[in-house]
Simulated assay, not measured.
Amino acid sequence: MLVQMIYASRSSRVLGPADIKDILGASQRNNSRAGITGALCLHNGIFLQLLEGDRTAVNVLYHRLLKDSRHRDAAILDLAEIPFRRFGTWSMGLIASLESNRQLFLKYSASADFDPYGMSTATLRSFFDEVLQNVRWLE
């Protein structure tokens, strides 16, 4: 069964460019092997990630992330069966808090600070729909 999970977590420490590059590289390698696709958003110390793949593989990955010391306050915000992958060409794309993405973060935020913990399921899905079409990705 194919599922899509959206979760958020807070960074347990300040991450530098090398940390982010390492996270993205490891995600791309591991996700490719596990048949998982998706997108990772990092903004103001908050990770927001959409994962797509086999239910068991996505579940295993999420539980591995819970043990990662770089994450705290992890929460599943949406989990649904899906008929097809939306991020099928991305083993993991990174949406960084670049100035060119600032308006997108603000568009879906209730306040000036991007806080996915307070976003509805419909808002989260709309955010990622727009991400697919309008975001500058880092690879």
Rank of each mutant, 00 (worst) to 15 (best):
G16I: 00
T89S: 15
L94M: 08
Q4Y: 06
L24D: 07
M1G: 04
P83I: 05
R64L: 11
R70W: 05
G16N: 09
G45M: 05
A57D: 12
A80Q: 15
V58I: 13
I82N: 03
T37R: 01
I46N: 00
L24W: 05
I36M: 05
M92G: 00
S109G: 07
Q49D: 08
L24M: 08
R33T: 07
A39R: 01
P83D: 15
I6L: 12
I46T: 15
F84C: 13
A39D: 00
Y108D: 03
Q103A: 15
S12G: 15
I46L: 08
V60T: 15
Y7I: 04
E81W: 02
S109I: 12
R13I: 10
L51I: 13
L24A: 05
S11D: 06
F84D: 14
L42E: 00
A39K: 02
A8G: 15
F87A: 09
S69I: 09
G88T: 04
P83N: 12
L50D: 00
I76Q: 12
D73P: 01
F84L: 10
N30W: 06
R13P: 00
N44R: 10
L15W: 03
R102V: 08
L79P: 05
N59R: 09
S109V: 03
S109T: 07
V3F: 07
A18W: 06
I36D: 06
I20Q: 01
A26Y: 02
M1H: 06
A34H: 09
I82V: 14
G35Y: 08
L50F: 06
G53V: 09
K67D: 12
A18N: 11
R86Y: 03
L50W: 00
L48W: 06
V14A: 00
S32A: 05
R86T: 11
Q28F: 04
I20E: 01
W90A: 06
R64H: 10
L50C: 13
T89A: 15
E99V: 10
A57F: 04
K21C: 10
